[in-house]
């Protein structure tokens, strides 16, 4: 079963986003990613799972050229958007080329209004009329924040802030929307609403989605393909439904193995076993 998952034939064909053999270091010393390769097909819905510190956020920073903020560098590997190399280009150019994210921890501008936050999301665009009508569209999409449009974003509840963060990223009209730990710290009801919305955007508008999650159950349920990242390496990947029924995944990611120490011990064992299988 596990061997089948790792079979070459289940690899998606090169698509919208291709990350090849990516190696990232912080401060020229801490290696955070060691040869990571992932693909998001055109119109795809892909998730990257992994525990805290696995390197998920680092992967996003590399893709969106934000490593510089954290003194991080791409040491090796390639990132391609529709076959064009984007690794290391200006972050603004990457947004313009079609990749925008909902960052971990939302990162709203707390003293700007909800509307101003949304407007910042359109920084890569020019057409004012279109931008204005897209802002109204966001308020249709999230009626809950419509009445708060002139309020400062810092006053909103966590769920409302996450809606603004998603709306802000959508204002870039991205071909690829990346969500980093969307579900973190939110009530299940709101998480459900947001995931349903992502599904709708993916199906109706063909926006590709790359979901970064610790909540493996939700992510596998909504995505079509998934990667599991551990200490900077992809240790497992495959179609989400196959991963969902995989016994290792069930045991270590879906079985509610909450205690960190326990999880760590089992993961080590798991990785050894996987290498042996390969």
């Amino acid at each position: 079963m596990a061997v089948q998952i790792l079979n070459e034939s289940t690899e998606p064909t090169p698509g919208l986003l291709d990350v090849n053999n990516l190696e990232v270091v912080y401060n020229d010393s801490v290696v955070a990613l060691r040869g990571v390769s992932i693909t998001v097909p055109e119109g795809g819905f892909v998730s990257v799972l992994g525990t805290n510190g696995a390197g998920k956020t680092t992967l996003i920073r590399a893709i969106t050229s934000l490593l510089f903020v954290h003194k991080g560098k791409i040491r090796d590997g390639e990132i391609e958007l529709r076959g064009k190399r984007i690794a290391g280009s200006d972050s603004a150019k990457i947004v313009k080329a079609g990749i925008c994210q909902v960052p971990e921890g939302r990162m709203l501008f707390p003293s700007l209004t909800v509307e101003e936050n949304l407007r910042i999301g359109s920084s890569s665009r020019r057409n004012r009329a279109e931008i204005n009508s897209d802002i109204e569209r966001m308020f249709d999409l999230f009626p809950q924040i419509a009445s708060r449009r002139k309020d400062v974003a810092g006053w909103l509840s966590g769920g409302e802030q996450q809606m603004v963060a998603v709306g802000r990223a959508l204002m870039a009209r991205p071909a690829l929307l990346i969500c980093d730990e969307l579900s973190l710290g939110l009530a299940p009801q709101i998480v459900h609403t947001l995931f349903e919305l992502l599904k709708q955007i993916n199906q109706d508008e063909g926006t590709s989605i790359l979901l970064i999650e610790q909540n493996a159950r939700m992510a596998l349920q909504y995505s079509k393909y998934a990667y599991i990242l551990e200490t900077g390496r992809v240790v497992l990947d495959g179609p989400s439904d196959v991963l969902e029924s995989n016994e290792d995944v069930q045991e270590f990611y879906l079985g509610g193995a909450g205690e960190a120490a326990e999880a760590y011990a089992t993961i080590k064992h798991y990785k050894k076993r996987k290498r042996w299988l390969l």
Partner: peptide, 23 residues
């Protein structure tokens, strides 16, 4: 103005502004 808004955004959170395509 748009650039004024971008100035305020960068002052508040440079990483978030850069992530949204502000230069």
């Amino acid at each position: 103005t748009t650039i004024g808004l971008q100035m305020r955004a960068v002052a508040e959170n440079l990483e978030a502004a850069a992530a949204m395509g502000v230069s």
